[in-house]
Amino acid sequence: MKAKSLADLGALKKLLQQQAEAAALREAQRKAAEERARRERELFSSAVGRVTTLKDKGLASVPRPRPEPTPAQRLLDEEAVLREAISDEFDVESLLETDEALSFRRPGVGPEVVKRLRRGDWVIQRQIDLHGLRRDEAREQLAEFLRESVRQGLRCVRVIHGKGNGSPGREPVLKGKVRTWLVQKDEVIAFAQARAADGGHGALVVLLRPWDAGAA
């Protein structure tokens, strides 16, 4: 019975020793971590120098509305496509006439731009519906629409002129007028007949010049 008690006492003594060693290890690790933090603070202070705390002026923090996100990468991609499509050679007729599919491009703008417009590669950012308006109303609204679109920094818009099915003799009068007006507008770089999904024969997709804030 006595031997058993001595064995239990020895086991207890060993357990207490292990616990003491574990506690000592934890304490040593804590001190080491504190020392590292102290050295890092001293290093930061020596690198930054003396820091003066700013006085609290009691100003209220006014939440400000966050600006709308700008699709910067998409605009850069479209700008790159336009630069790549610029050509030193151009057909003079491209300034004065449009083709059977009602497309147009300024001198120096390559045909690839028109092809991409037809494919719908540019995102349509705004549109105006002119069909049903009188000629003078349509002309004025189109001019204002183009000016405002350029002012807003838009690059690709859609102009809906209708297919002319309701015109006398079913002749697309407004359709031809819109083409003529667009050609005369400096804001317009190129345009092409819209895809079927975007209006087909009843609409044009128009590419605009980048807005020059200095010229405003």
Rank of each mutant, 00 (worst) to 15 (best):
F145P: 04
I86L: 12
R83E: 15
K14D: 01
G120Q: 10
V109D: 13
S5D: 12
A216M: 05
Q184S: 13
R83M: 09
L95T: 08
L54P: 04
V114E: 15
L95K: 00
L59Q: 11
R26G: 00
A194N: 02
D121Y: 14
S167H: 14
K185L: 05
V157L: 03
A7N: 04
L182F: 01
Q19L: 10
A32R: 05
T70Q: 13
A28F: 00
A28W: 00
E187T: 05
H161V: 07
D198S: 13
P63I: 05
R38E: 14
A85N: 03
D121F: 13
R74G: 04
P210Q: 12
K177A: 06
S45A: 15
P210F: 00
R151S: 10
I189C: 06
G110Q: 02
A28D: 01
L9C: 06
V123N: 09
K185Y: 03
L54V: 00
H131P: 11
R41A: 13
R209I: 07
R66V: 10
L82Q: 04
L142S: 06
V114C: 07
P71G: 10
I124A: 07
V109A: 10
L96G: 04
P67N: 10
S45N: 14
K31S: 11
R83T: 10
E140M: 12
T53R: 15
F90N: 08
S46M: 12
L182H: 08
P111N: 06
G164M: 08
R66L: 12
N165I: 07
L208G: 03
T180I: 03
A143H: 13
A213E: 14
E35L: 12
E112P: 01
Q193M: 15
